[in-house]
């Protein structure tokens, strides 16, 4: 597994020549400029290069305004980069597709559909016949711990339950990559912890590639194989940290593990630096 950041332009080389055999997503010198007003441009992402291996759980960590969500949206195909390119399995990303399944902080459920209707939506759209789609969806709803809530509408659910539905809805159409945009950011601390545990359990079963955006150091270390630390204004990759902790991970064991604690302390220090000074230019 290799995540390759490039921080200076002289280090540029063709990504294809050096990519590891199992690379699934390649981000090649991506920059993103937003026009904030008629005259002012804001450089949200500057020259980002990153390779993500198949089956890896990679977190993008950074202070607010570092463009980490924008990077995720570029991989999702929801936003086109100003320059540079993103690829999935060697194919240039030109728009959204069912190979990349997003899970948003805002849940973005379809409020006019029940839990079952939401989860079945993707498979039905992919042409799976209703009986099969329903059986698969019911199994997924059970897996995310919502058995018995199939016929509830989103408005009748708590935030944590909504995010469980959103996860099931995305898993239902079997994306190869999960794109999670601060998925637990709107939840209270206890619910957040429970969803992290459950996400890890689900992930450790089939090891889908996950790109996970967060501003929580604990969350990033607890979940990930790699943490990509970003700095802000403009958004750049500051460092890529391998999280070398055994799996399956259990929270109660991990919290007592000195290696886990060291990762958290080190990354927190780095976080403070990038948040205060911005990126070195």
């Amino acid at each position: 597994m290799k995540v390759v950041p490039s921080r200076s332009s002289e280090w540029v080389r063709p990504v294809t020549s050096q990519k590891p055999a199992s690379a699934i997503i390649e981000i090649d010198r991506v920059s993103q400029v937003f026009q904030t007003s008629a005259r002012k441009d804001h450089l949200a992402l500057s020259d980002i290069s990153l390779t993500i291996d198949e089956g890896a759980f990679v977190s993008i960590l950074g202070p607010s305004g570092c463009g980490k969500s924008t990077l995720l949206y570029i991989v999702g195909g929801f936003v086109s980069p100003t320059s540079g390119a993103a690829k999935i399995k060697g194919q240039a990303i030109t728009g959204p597709g069912p190979d990349r399944g997003p899970v948003f902080q805002e849940f973005a459920l379809f409020p006019w559909k029940t839990v079952l209707g939401n989860v079945m939506y993707g498979p039905r759209q992919q042409g799976v016949r209703t009986p099969e789609a329903e059986a698969q969806s019911r199994a997924l709803i059970e897996m995310v711990g919502l058995k018995g809530y199939e016929n509830f509408y989103p408005k009748e659910l708590s935030g944590g339950m909504k995010q469980r539905v959103a996860l099931a809805r995305t898993l239902a159409y079997h994306p190869e990559v999960l794109l999670m945009d601060e998925p637990f950011g709107a939840l209270d601390a206890h619910t957040r912890t429970r969803l992290q545990n459950d996400l890890l359990n689900i992930w450790e079963r089939d090891r889908k590639t996950v790109l996970f955006v967060t501003h929580s150091v604990d969350e990033a270390v607890f979940l990930s194989d790699k943490v990509v630390m970003m700095s802000k204004s403009p958004g750049r990759i500051r460092q890529v940290i391998d999280i070398d902790l055994p799996r399956p991970r259990r929270r109660n064991e991990l919290l007592l593990d000195p290696r886990y604690q060291k990762y958290v302390v080190d990354i927190e220090r780095m976080f403070d630096e990038v948040d205060e000074t911005g990126s070195p230019s």
């Binding site: 999702g76 195909g77 929801f78 728009g95 959204p96 597709g97 069912p98 990349r100 399944g101 997003p102 948003f104 805002e106 973005a108 459920l109 379809f110 939506y121 993707g122 759209q125 992919q126 809805r169 995305t170 159409y173 994306p175």
Partner: peptide, 14 residues
Amino acid sequence: VEEKMLWSGAAMGL
């Protein structure tokens, strides 16, 4: 209409 709802639909292939 929430943009993310439309994005979710786009990812499903709508």
